[in-house]
Simulated assay, not measured.
Amino acid sequence: MLDLELLKTLVCVVDEGSFTRAANRVHRTQSTVSQQVRKLEQSVGKTLLLRDRAGGNVSATEDGELMLVYARRLLAIAGEAEHVLLAPRAARVLRLGVPEDFDVSRLTVLLAGFAARHPDARLETISGMSAGLRDGLASGELDLALVKREPGDGPCLAAWPERLIWVGDRQRARDAAVVPLVLFPQGCIYRKRMIYALESAGRPWHIAYHSHSLAGVQAAVAAGLGVSLLPAFARLDSHGLLDAEDGFAAVPSTELAIVGDQRALSPVEQDLVAALKQAIGDATGDLAA
């Protein structure tokens, strides 16, 4: 194997045309520079430099000229490799879609662990309705997404059942001739479940409050503005639990799924999926209990 330090010395001596000037340039003694050149010559079994004893000048032999071509190339490649490895690397951006009504605080601890394991990755969390998140995956705007959906609605990387419960003020809900609903936007699967259940039971209803965020819906229910349908984990202590005796029959569970292309996942994305599985899996007692 050729020693890069010896090649660097050879190039320096030829460029300077003198062992003395080369020694000054690399801050070494002339004897050290001469020894390095001789060591390189012994290594390749060729005389690489001619020394003018009278004038002290040095020139390359024919073999030396050939060696110089490769020496400069090898040194350039080594310098390039060092520059690339030492330069700050561009962050790998991972785009994760999360439903508007999802409690992101459940993920923060494990996502922080993911970030610590992958300092070169930058995680962007984008919230939206599940239908929009699916569109984002299809267009390549998202790498992974958590979506609320009907159970078994297409392939996924992991899925968990999500038990839904009616919440609101029990007395007001029983006395109301027209049920006041606190709803998420159009396209939300909880909204569809609520309206279908009340229509099937023949109960009139009206929209009392509308919010894109889980926190907004929770606050509206707590304030007594109306009734809503939420995943079990999202019920607050201030929410009354409504059941069939109050005129609100149980509704089928929905599903929380991690969606993405398993075949195209990079190792970093696979680790993110594992973190999501752990974060959501730890909460399945609340989701499905």
Rank of each mutant, 00 (worst) to 15 (best):
M67K: 09
L94Q: 04
A78P: 05
H118T: 09
L96H: 06
G97N: 07
T125E: 14
A115I: 03
A78I: 04
L66W: 10
R122S: 13
E80M: 12
A116M: 06
G64T: 09
E65D: 11
S130C: 12
E80S: 13
S127Q: 15
L94P: 01
L68I: 10
M67G: 01
G132L: 03
E82I: 10
A112P: 00
P119M: 08
R73T: 11
D120T: 15
H118S: 13
T61I: 03
D135K: 12
R106W: 14
V109L: 13
A116N: 05
S59N: 01
R134I: 04
A112T: 15
L86Y: 05
R134T: 04
T125F: 07
A76Y: 04
V93Y: 01
R89Q: 13
F102L: 06
S130V: 09
A87L: 02
A90L: 06
G113H: 08
L86F: 04
D63S: 14
L123A: 06
P99R: 08
E65K: 15
R92L: 13
S105Q: 05
L110F: 09
A87S: 15
A76P: 06
R122L: 12
A115E: 15
A60V: 09
E82N: 01
F102S: 03
R73A: 15
L133N: 06
L96D: 04
G64K: 11
A76R: 13
R122V: 10
D120K: 05
D135G: 07
R122N: 08
V109S: 08
A91L: 15
R95A: 10
M129H: 13
L133D: 02
A90P: 03
L110N: 07
P119S: 08
A121N: 09
L94W: 01
R89F: 00
V84T: 12
T61F: 06
L123R: 08
L111R: 00
M67Y: 08
G113E: 14
L96S: 04
A91T: 11
L75F: 03
L123W: 08
S130M: 10
M129S: 14
A87H: 01
D103M: 09
A60E: 13
L107G: 07
A76T: 11
R117C: 07
G79S: 05
F114N: 00
A76M: 04
A116K: 06
G128Q: 09
H118W: 12
E62K: 01
H83S: 13
N57P: 00
A115P: 02
R106A: 12
D103A: 13
M129D: 12
G128S: 10
S105Y: 03
G64P: 05
V98N: 11
A81P: 00
A90N: 07
M129C: 01
A76S: 15
P88M: 02
L107S: 02
A91W: 02
G64S: 00
E124N: 11
A60C: 06
A115V: 10
E124V: 11
R72N: 08
E82D: 09
H118F: 15
L86M: 06
D120S: 12
E82P: 01
L96N: 03
D120I: 05
A115Y: 02
R92H: 07
A116R: 07
R95M: 03
P99E: 08
A131D: 03
H118N: 14
D135S: 14
L86K: 09
E62S: 03
P88T: 04
R89E: 02
R106E: 12
R134L: 14
V58T: 03
M67I: 12
D120E: 10
T125N: 10
Y70Q: 14
